[in-house]
Design a protein around this nucleic acid. Structure first.
Lengths: 99, 99
DNA sequence: ATAAAGCGGTTTATAATATTAACCAAATGA
DNA sequence: TCATTTGGTTAATATTATAAACCGCTTTAT
């Protein structure tokens, strides 16, 4: 009945990161930090976990002279996310009981 | 954009407990343990957290000579769950992108 | 009877995780 | 030049989940 939830995605910040990357196709570190209202440290750690899992790709480049770290979701990340959502639905009684 | 997820509900086991109690209206310890495939220790701890938060009520009674701990969800628990689901939807891009 | 094993749980210890705090190098501004 | 800010990383800490050990009671076997 209750299938296990991918622990990598069942995390508020990582889920938010994935959600953004799913709708935006590419986002840099600063943008993600603003959107998620997270601290740099936390964001850095969580990005790295997603990257290690192969859910996102991270490329370091430049914006003018400043460094810029760009993230984008991978195919593997997309399917993991979709699977997570399906699994999660099993927990959420999405069929609202009639009032 | 990303509202905080109630940490009490954003937990696999506690969410499963709540999900069951939402659909069943009353369940005892053993039933919950079987359905969630959790250990007694883990279940005991998580039930207690939900009870402390006022999300569920716990009553101790008897089934024959043996003790029986019965759980049921409270109105507060129901609304917390519903709110959690709504918040969560903000993370889940539920509108599938057309293939 | 009494020992041993099982059941329904709780409490305590440990493993895993998230979050922050401290730091660093490069760039900018006074 | 030297202090600040920016874009991050690394290391330490706080929080959380999970499992292990235990407890009182009941049932079963001897």
């Amino acid at each position: 009945m209750f299938k296990p939830l991918d622990p990598l995605l069942h995390s508020e910040l990582r889920l938010a990161i994935m959600s953004i990357l799913l709708s935006v196709e590419e986002a840099d570190f600063v943008y993600l930090r603003e959107q998620t209202k997270s601290t740099s440290g936390n964001l850095s750690v969580q990005i790295d976990k997603l990257r290690e899992a192969g859910y996102i790709e991270v490329e370091r480049g430049f914006a003018g002279k400043r460094t810029r770290t760009v993230c984008k979701i991978t195919a593997h990340g997309i399917s993991a996310f979709e699977k997570y959502v399906e699994t999660l639905k099993g927990y959420l009684n999405l069929n609202k009981p009639e009032k």
